[in-house]
């Protein structure tokens, strides 16, 4: 068990180090001059040069890389060039929107998809099963930004029970903030619900064919216990894997959904930073997300161990 975890941890660390190199390289080769973006088309060459020197853009690549890594190791993320705000504060403020949004969307997805998948597997081959499959087909095909716009038109413009967008802020209005995240989370989760429903259904179909399920039924266990107690627990392993992967997609989807719903989240921050060539923000956000995905993957590995003892031994 310890061995399994330490190996996973070492791999995650190595990935992180490699990621810093790749992220740095990609961000640095992005065409575009941050000083020119800040000063615009009337900027004089001497002004541009002065600003570049001020931000250290004229330093050699290795110096800039080491400077950045040194900052990361001492938990100093530096300051945004465009906003002049410390990057840590900038990211912290935005995570306060994106993390709850992602968590809400993932909860939605799990809450709807697992029962729906179990139901479809239970009703395998019937009209209900076909109905659920049809729904997932639509869910996968609809772009989530379009679904978001439809939700806004229905719930915000016509019925006015949800705001059309914006975010009041946790401190100013906590209830209003949750309220503002419901529609975006719904829009964000649609595709994930569809995928997770399909995965749950097929995993359930596999486990329902297993001997132990037949044994459980044979010994007279109620159908509810058979489905949720015996079959679902095993079926949850692939579902957990996919849910972990989906967490990454949710972050990517958040860029678009945050724009439709005007949420000041990390997705918007990345988008704006790329457009402003705010290199230090892009680098740090991407590394933070890499870290997040690694942590989610580790958590998924741990969840396997909890759900199924076999990897503990096999690894």
């Amino acid at each position: 068990m310890i061995d399994f975890l330490s190996r996973r941890l070492a791999a995650a660390l190595l990935t992180l180090v490699l990621a810093t190199v790749v992220v740095f390289a990609i961000v640095e080769v992005l065409p575009g001059d941050p000083a020119l973006v800040m000063l615009g088309t009337d900027a004089r060459p001497d002004t541009l040069a002065a600003l570049r020197a001020q931000y250290g853009f004229d330093q050699p690549l290795t110096v800039r890389y080491l400077h950045w890594i040194g900052g990361l190791l001492s938990f100093d993320l530096g300051s945004s060039h465009a906003y002049g705000t410390p990057v840590a504060k900038l990211i912290g403020d935005r995570l306060a929107v994106t993390l709850p949004l992602g968590a809400l969307a993932l909860s939605w997805a799990l809450l709807v998809a697992i029962p729906l998948g179990v139901f479809a597997a239970w009703k395998h081959g019937t009209a209900s099963d076909w109905g659920v499959m049809g729904f997932t087909q639509i869910g996968i095909s609809l772009p989530n930004f379009w679904f978001g716009i439809v939700l806004v038109l229905a719930f915000a413009v016509t019925w006015r029970i949800f705001p059309a967008g914006g975010f009041p802020g946790w401190r100013q209005d906590p209830v209003g903030s949750i309220h503002a995240l419901i529609l975006p989370a719904l829009a964000l989760s649609l595709g994930e619900i569809a995928i997770l429903t399909r995965v749950t259904r097929s995993a359930m179909l596999d486990t329902l064919r297993e001997d132990y399920v037949r044994t459980a039924r044979a010994k007279g266990a109620p159908e509810r216990t058979v489905l949720f107690g015996h079959a679902l627990r095993n079926a949850l392993i692939p579902v957990t894997t996919v849910a972990g992967l989906i967490a990454g997609f949710l972050i990517a989807g958040a860029v678009i959904i945050e724009s439709v719903f005007r949420l000041p989240g990390v997705g918007q921050l990345v988008y704006d930073s790329i457009n402003n060539r705010d290199l230090i923000v892009i680098k740090n956000v991407v590394i933070l997300f890499t870290l997040l995905v690694l942590v989610v993957n580790l958590a998924v590995d741990l969840a396997y161990v909890a759900l199924d003892p076999r990897p503990r031994v096999a690894a």
Binding site: S107, L111, I114, P115, A156, R160, I161, F162, P163, A164, P168, V175, G176, I178, H179, I182, R224, F228, G229, L232, R233, A306, L307
Partner: peptide, 25 residues
């Protein structure tokens, strides 16, 4: 670790209980 229907319903209820306020504007 098992997921019962009761847990699922409880969680769904918590979400639907959020008040529905209109835009401040």
């Amino acid at each position: 670790m098992s997921i019962s229907r009761r847990h699922l319903i409880g969680a769904a209820g918590a979400v639907s209980m959020l008040p529905a306020f209109g835009p401040e504007a």
